[in-house]
Computed example of a mutant assay.
Amino acid sequence: MGHLFTDRAEAGALLAERLPGRRDAVVLALPRGGVAVALPVARRLGGVLDVLVTRKIGYPESPELGVGALAEGGEPVFDEELMGRLGLTMADLDEVVERERAELERRVRVYRGSRPLPTVAGHDVVVVDDGLATGVTARAALRALRAAEPDRLTLAAPVGAARTVKMLRGEADEVVVLATPPDFFAVGQWYEHFDQLTDAEVLSLLRSR
């Protein structure tokens, strides 16, 4: 198994080539990793670059296992199939949801301060992430944005699980993914360099637009 991309910047440059005809689009990255991919996309499209802050809702007994997600401006979205397998109800996750909502609001302040999200209504909007594993975070983002009535809503990522990409096609007007490897296990396996970004690095990328 070989890497598909050297790093997120290279992946973003390749992704940008697959997104023609979207001049002046609003490009919204899912932080943190999505910001490094979205920067070359926004430069190529000549549009606004900002973040749409999301938070994973973790399984209380194993927080790394995401059973849902929150996106700013939207309601929680849950992986109902996984919750059923785990015997979870939404009420079981109330405390986790409130904790993640508070962290989401904190990160919005860190990344944008008092600046509002760019205007979405009536605009061509491209949501960018560094990869799509379960897709629950992207789904939360797309649903929050859909409620804001964009003219066109596109999800773009360098790599994703085939099943996830198929599921997300029902959430966006278009889903652009460069590769859906049959042996997909995790996003990071397809990058030679996949270090986690810090908040400071995210802010630096946003300023460099």
Results as ranks from 00 to 15, higher is better:
76 P>M: 11
100 E>L: 12
111 Y>I: 01
54 T>G: 00
136 V>W: 00
40 P>Q: 04
56 K>F: 08
79 D>H: 11
83 M>W: 09
59 Y>T: 06
86 L>Y: 10
41 V>P: 04
57 I>K: 01
49 L>W: 06
52 L>W: 02
124 D>K: 07
119 T>G: 12
48 V>E: 14
36 A>F: 03
132 L>I: 15
113 G>H: 06
122 G>W: 09
40 P>H: 07
62 S>I: 01
106 R>T: 13
35 V>S: 02
85 R>A: 13
136 V>S: 02
80 E>L: 15
134 T>S: 15
73 G>F: 06
117 L>I: 12
89 T>E: 15
73 G>D: 04
58 G>L: 06
64 E>R: 01
63 P>E: 03
136 V>P: 02
105 E>V: 03
133 A>E: 12
67 V>D: 13
127 V>M: 02
80 E>C: 02
62 S>V: 11
73 G>N: 13
110 V>N: 07
113 G>R: 09
78 F>L: 12
39 L>V: 15
40 P>W: 03
55 R>Q: 09
109 R>A: 15
58 G>C: 10
110 V>E: 09
68 G>N: 07
108 V>R: 14
81 E>W: 13
39 L>K: 13
112 R>L: 12
43 R>V: 14
123 H>W: 10
49 L>H: 08
117 L>A: 12
86 L>T: 11
124 D>I: 05
107 R>Q: 12
117 L>R: 14
41 V>M: 04
51 V>N: 00
68 G>A: 09
113 G>C: 06
80 E>G: 12
128 V>A: 11
88 L>F: 11
43 R>K: 15
35 V>L: 06
72 E>S: 01
85 R>H: 15
125 V>Q: 01
67 V>Q: 07
120 V>N: 03
47 G>E: 06
69 A>S: 10
56 K>I: 09
62 S>W: 08
84 G>S: 04
115 R>N: 09
84 G>P: 08
48 V>D: 03
63 P>V: 01
104 L>W: 07
69 A>G: 04
107 R>N: 07
59 Y>A: 04
77 V>D: 03
38 A>I: 06
133 A>I: 14
115 R>Q: 14
134 T>H: 09
126 V>M: 10
118 P>A: 00
99 R>L: 13
50 D>G: 04
44 R>I: 06
104 L>I: 04
53 V>E: 05
74 G>V: 08
130 D>M: 10
48 V>I: 13
116 P>R: 08
125 V>A: 00
114 S>H: 11
89 T>F: 03
70 L>V: 07
103 E>S: 10
135 G>L: 09
129 D>Q: 11
104 L>R: 02
130 D>F: 05
40 P>R: 03
94 D>L: 14
71 A>S: 00
65 L>I: 15
105 E>D: 14
54 T>A: 00
53 V>L: 00
127 V>H: 02
115 R>E: 15
66 G>N: 01
51 V>F: 00
75 E>H: 03
130 D>E: 15
98 E>G: 09
39 L>S: 07
121 A>G: 14
110 V>S: 03
71 A>V: 01
108 V>Y: 09
128 V>C: 09
124 D>R: 07
66 G>H: 05
132 L>V: 15
119 T>D: 05
67 V>P: 02
101 R>I: 10
61 E>H: 14
128 V>L: 08
